[in-house]
């Protein structure tokens, strides 16, 4: 005696097996998970990158508060992460442009200290602006 036919649309009956359905369901679930991981996280940027002379020296999660120091050609630049934001606490330079950039929390926001060749940038795809005139 044959088993009862699965409840499928007549057009699919006999073409899609239970195994196919399982694989399809798993694939879809996987794609959803990937989409959430790849795009969902950008709704709230969670990573900042600190570079010296274009070279990555720190990759920081904005979810974990902390204070860090990096060494550049002009001395030490101190950065702080708190409440999902990052800022330049101190950096050598006459104008303190790095510090004056304040807290960075949006994707694409940047603080730069030229003498120490340091840049701090919040990562993310959903940048509000492609470029800033300042």
């Amino acid at each position: 005696m044959s088993p009862p036919a699965p409840a499928l649309h007549p057009a699919l009956r006999g073409r899609l097996t239970a195994g196919d359905a399982v694989v399809l369901a798993l694939s879809l679930a996987g794609l959803v998970a990937l989409a959430v991981q790849l795009w969902g996280a950008d709704a709230r940027p969670d990573t900042a990158l600190v570079r010296i002379d274009g070279r990555e020296v720190l990759r920081l999660s904005l979810a974990e508060a902390g204070q860090y120091a990096v060494e550049g050609p002009a001395g030490t630049t101190r950065v702080e992460v708190r409440d999902g934001r990052i800022r330049c606490v101190s950096s050598p330079g006459p104008q303190h442009l790095c510090e004056r950039a304040g807290w960075l929390s949006h994707a694409g926001e940047v603080a730069v200290g030229l003498p120490n060749r340091v840049s701090i940038e919040v990562l993310g795809r959903n940048r509000r602006f492609d470029s800033i005139s300042y």
Binding site: R128, F129, D130, S131, I132, S133, Y134
Partner: peptide, 23 residues
């Protein structure tokens, strides 16, 4: 190309315009 806040934009992003902020 943006040199110290002085920028020029050409073309587009697949038909989407470049978005420029003024500080």
């Amino acid at each position: 190309v943006n040199a110290g806040g002085n920028l020029r934009a050409i073309g587009s992003k697949d038909g989407q315009p470049w978005r420029i902020g003024v500080r």
